[in-house]
Each structure stands twice: as structure tokens, then as C-alpha cells.
């Protein structure tokens, strides 16, 4: 069995255990009444819980991989004379040093990170507004028109102006009925896609982890 085969095998086994455990465990009612069914349900739950906890630990640890990658990338870029990589590495070092020297005090992070991200968030407003103004440039068709119309109606409906009361009522209906239905349909589609992707992964059809 090659490396790919081993990955598929591990994925299949772990996936199957997790599915059985999470779907059938923790509900004695599925196995009829009696003390035995409770014990069975408890035992079935255990492997799934253990696996989930392992996943949580792995995800938490993966941040370390991310940081290593970030440093590696930017050291490489620094070698090619990229100024901002130097800034990044310097701020990384300063933040780590500050946090260590001040025994875990993250105030520097908060003083820098929060304002910068807030500024980026503020940039979203013009980006979205100006992007919204160009929809017809890219999609000059009836769907683009519909999209723009809905955007405008919902925006107008959110304004607290008494003159716009009819628009507000229409906007509320729009959000509650068609938009809601569409959103649910998209979410349903995504859930189906996720299920099919999960089955693909279990069957070892994805190259993503086949090595």
C-alpha cells in the first residue's frame, strides 16, 4: 500500500468511526430500553468524542504551522529585498518580546491589531459601495439588474426616513420571503455539496490528501 493508499485507508476508518459514533451514540433510545442500551450508547459515543477532541487539539496546534510558514515566507521575501516583510518580521519579534517580557500582557497586540483591523473594516464600506456601483459593468443582464434593484431596495428600506415607509414595508417583505427563500436554497445546496464532498473524501476520491 502506497502512501496515498494509506491516507485513504486512515481517512476511511477514522471517518467511519466518527460517523457511526456521532450518529448512533449518545441516544440509548435507539437501542431499546434497558441498562445495556445505555452502556452501548455511551461506548459508541466515546470514540467520536475522542476524535473530535483530537481534531480540536490539531487545529489549535496548526496555528504554529501557520506562524512557521509566515516567517519562512517573509524571510524569503526579505532576502529579495521586500521592505514590508522586514516590517512584518520586526513587528513579530517586538510583539513576542513584549508579551514575554510583560508576562503575557497582550496590550501591544490590542493597541495595534484592533485599530488596524478596524481601519480595514472601515475600508470595506467604500469598497462595497463602489463595487456595487460596477455590477452592471460586469453583468449587464437581467440578473445584474435584479441584483442591483434588490440591493437598492434593501438599502433604502434600512433608512429611518418616514417618506420611505412603503419601501421599508416592501424591503421587509423582500428580506423575509424571497431573499430568505433564496438564502435557504443556497445553504441547502451547500449542505448537499458538503455531504457529497464528505462521501468523496471517505471513498478516497479526493486527491487533496491522497499524497
Amino acid at each position: 500500500m502506497g502512501r496515498g493508499g494509506l491516507s485513504v485507508f486512515v481517512a476511511f476508518i477514522v471517518g467511519a468511526i466518527a460517523i457511526v459514533s456521532l450518529l448512533l451514540g449518545d441516544n440509548p433510545a435507539l437501542f431499546g430500553a434497558g441498562a445495556g442500551s445505555e452502556e452501548l450508547a455511551r461506548r459508541l459515543t466515546l470514540p467520536g468524542d475522542v476524535l473530535l477532541r483530537l481534531v480540536v487539539i490539531v487545529i489549535a496546534l496548526s496555528v504554529v504551522i501557520g506562524i512557521v510558514n509566515l516567517l519562512y515566507v517573509h524571510i524569503g521575501r526579505l532576502a529579495r529585498g521586500k521592505f514590508y516583510s522586514a516590517v512584518l518580521l520586526a513587528s513579530f519579534a517586538v510583539t513576542i518580546a513584549w508579551t514575554v517580557l510583560n508576562k503575557g500582557d497582550a496590550s501591544l497586540l490590542e493597541a495595534v491589531q484592533v485599530p488596524i483591523e478596524s481601519a480595514l473594516a472601515a475600508l470595506l464600506f467604500p469598497s462595497l459601495a463602489l463595487g456595487g456601483a460596477r455590477v452592471m459593468q460586469k453583468r449587464a443582464d437581467v440578473w445584474g439588474l435584479l441584483f442591483v434593484a434588490v440591493v437598492l431596495i434593501v438599502l433604502l428600506g434600512s433608512l429611518p426616513l418616514a417618506e420611505l415607509a412603503p419601501v421599508q414595508a416592501f424591503s421587509d417583505w423582500l428580506m423575509a420571503v424571497p431573499v430568505n427563500a433564496g438564502a435557504r436554497a443556497i445553504l441547502l445546496g451547500i449542505a448537499l455539496g458538503a455531504a457529497v464532498a464528505g462521501v468523496r473524501a471517505l471513498l478516497g476520491q479526493d486527491r487533496a490528501y491522497r499524497g
Binding site: 459601495a129 456595487g132 460596477r134 452592471m136 437598492l152 438599502l155
Partner: peptide, 12 residues
């Protein structure tokens, strides 16, 4: 935003 989105899209 309403004015910009409406105006831009009408022009395009």
C-alpha cells in the same frame, strides 16, 4: 451608497 450604486449602475 444608494446614490453611488444607482448612479454607477445606470451609467454602466
Amino acid at each position: 451608497a444608494v446614490v453611488i450604486i444607482a448612479g454607477g449602475n445606470v451609467l454602466y
